[in-house]
Every structure is written in C-alpha cells, then in structure tokens.
C-alpha cells in the first residue's frame, strides 16, 4: 500500500525545507544541493569533486549544522594513519591505579564525516576509511564497534594538483553513492555572494532538522514504491553499460573497460526513491531514474585508453545509454507472469 498523500506531504515539506536552507548557505548550487539531499535520504556516501574554493567544505559544514547531527571533519594528508580516523586502544589508568586499554574512538565516529581531500591520504588510510563506510562499523583488535546511525561520509577531492596524491581505487569509489561535480557559479551568483556575504561566510542556519524528522524521512523512503517496469528500466541501464552486454552500444563496446556493479543498480533505485520523495510522489518514476543515473554511474564506469583518446567521458556514455534505451521496451506481460510460475 502506498504512503498516504498527507503523510508524504509532511515529509516532502521537511526535505524541501532542508533544500531551501542549503540553498541559502551556498548560493547558485541548487542541483548539487538536491543531489546531496537525495544522497542523505538514501543513506549514501557522497564524493564531491571540484576545484578549490567552490564551496565543498562549506556545503558539508552547512549540511552538518542543518542536520543537527554530530559532524566531524578529517583533513586527509599523506601522513594520516588509519588509527587517526578509526581510533585506537590506549593505556589508561583509573582512580584505583589500575591500567587498562581503553578504546578511543576516532573521527569517524560521527553521523556526518567530512573527509576533506580524501585523495591525499595514503591507500592504507583510505582503505580503512572506505571499509568503515561500507560496513558502517569499525573492527579493532577483534572488537567490532558500530558507527552511529545515520552515518554519512561526505568526501571531497581536488581534480588538479594530482602530484603527491593517491587516487582512490575504482573498487573503492564504488562505495560512494554519488560523485558530484561542484562547479563554479556564474557572475550573477558571484555578485550575490560578495554583496551578501561578509568574507564569504555563510549565514548561520535558523532551522535544523530533528532526529525524529530525519527518521520519519527514512521511514517514508521505505514506503516509496518502486514499480516493476521502473526497476526493469534501472536494471537495463546498468546492464547495458557493460561492454559485453548483448545490446551494448558500439561506443560502450569500444570505450568501456568495466561496467558498473550491481551496487550501482541498488544505488540508482535508492536515489530514485529519494528523488520521488523530494517531488512528493509515492512512486518512483522514469524521470527520477534518469535524474540520478548520471551521478550514480559516472564514477562506476571505467573507461579505456580509446575513450581517453576520443575524449569520451563516463557522462557521455550514460547519456548515450539514456538516449537509446526505451523505458517501455519490456514485455511486461511476460515479466509479470514469471513470479506466478
């Protein structure tokens, strides 16, 4: 049974309010904010990529304030160690003089973690971080400690100054729900920023989402219906991005080395649900899928050198898939008959 319209309206209003507040914090980045909220509602980790000074850190900071959740920032550097992130056992002496190893949680034990310039940390540290992201728990010396719920990692990375950096391996990039490119803003927005912001500092938010409201949003997300045809469409998008797929486009065969994993399909479905919620709909539509397909897939499609020579980007590949794939090209009757058999 679909969620009632009134209930959904309440949750949509909260989500829209969150979006509105984010728009106030960082001017001219509405689409980025929207994707950020979709990512939060999907309980996914987000990788923000952009040049220095476009507002990545400010955005995540503002989000932490709006979410009214525990927020921590980790500045990744080459000498950063896993223990700096995850925490460790340290020897402590109590008032009776007894000494024992006590776990000191790292910076990752927070609801929202900003992993600033994640590609500057060593692979060892990155791996520790990314493992925690996937498992949502930290295992240290045989003891597994769950991370707080909700748990989001909002990482940022700089696409330039790659010397002395450690690019995140593709397999680990897959842990991020979205990879959002934060671009610069136009002159009007810039004028607005410099006229309204003293030294560029965003205004302090006057409103913040409560824990109950956030839980309500997550509950509503679970009740957003993903219909069979839409699910089939998501599956076909992901499947056709593989070079060895029978109906793969010629450019995909020539340019794609590895296609997205099944996790990508799950991510699209979840993100599409959040997009539907944001639109105030209890059902996931094809447009929701199309809206989130690019940020979900663009870091999951691994291109070969041929693509680099031809200046083909993952975004181009996704665009071609969306252009050529017909949402209605399914034999619904046959598909519907299968579960009955």
């Amino acid at each position: 049974m679909l969620i009632e319209p009134q209930q959904l309206k309440e949750h949509q209003d909260i989500a829209l309010k969150l979006l509105e507040e984010l728009d106030k914090i960082l001017l001219g980045q509405h689409e980025v904010h929207k994707l950020l909220i979709i990512g939060i509602l999907s309980k996914g980790h987000i990788l923000l990529e952009g040049l220095p000074g476009v507002g990545k850190t400010a955005l995540v900071k503002g989000l932490g304030l709006l979410m009214n959740l525990e927020f921590k920032r980790i500045q990744f550097t080459p000498d950063l160690l896993p223990a700096d992130i995850l925490g460790g056992n340290i020897l402590q002496q109590d008032q009776h003089g007894n000494r024992s190893l006590v776990f000191q949680p790292g910076a990752i034990f927070a609801n929202i973690v900003l992993a600033d310039e994640i590609n500057r940390a060593s692979p060892k540290t990155q791996s520790a971080m990314l493992e925690a992201m996937q498992e949502r728990a930290v295992t240290l010396q045989g003891t597994t400690r769950p991370l707080p719920d909700p748990f989001f990692v909002l990482a940022s990375q700089n696409p330039i100054e790659l010397e002395g950096t450690y690019p995140i391996p593709e397999a680990q990039l897959d842990r991020f729900l979205f990879k959002i490119s934060v671009t610069g803003v136009n002159a009007d927005v810039l004028a607005q920023i410099i006229s309204q912001r003293r030294r560029g500092e965003p205004p302090a938010p006057t409103w913040a989402i409560t824990k109950d409201q956030l839980d309500g949003l997550f509950d509503a997300m679970d009740r957003i219906h993903l219909s069979g045809p839409v699910a089939n469409y998501i599956a076909r998008i992901v499947a056709s991005a593989h070079p060895d797929a029978p109906n793969a486009h010629e450019s995909i065969r020539n340019c794609v080395r590895f296609g997205p994993s099944p996790r990508a399909a799950i991510a699209i479905a979840e993100a599409a649900r959040a997009a539907a919620l944001l639109e105030g709909r209890p059902t996931v539509g094809f447009d929701d899928v199309i809206a989130v397909a690019k940020p979900v897939l663009n870091h999951r499609i691994i291109l070969n050198y041929q693509a680099k020579l031809e200046n083909i980007t993952p975004e181009t590949i996704v665009d071609r898939i969306l252009d050529t794939l017909d949402p209605a090209a399914i034999d619904w009757d046959k598909l519907h008959a299968k579960p009955q058999e």
């Binding site: 679909l2 219906h225 219909s227 069979g228 709909r281 996931v284 539509g285 929701d288 519907h336």
Partner: peptide
C-alpha cells in the same frame, strides 16, 4: 512519475 507503471503491480 511512475503512477501508471505502479498501477500495473
């Protein structure tokens, strides 16, 4: 917005 597709199942 997926309503027509949802009405199928």
């Amino acid at each position: 917005g997926g309503f027509l597709a949802t009405s199928l199942d």
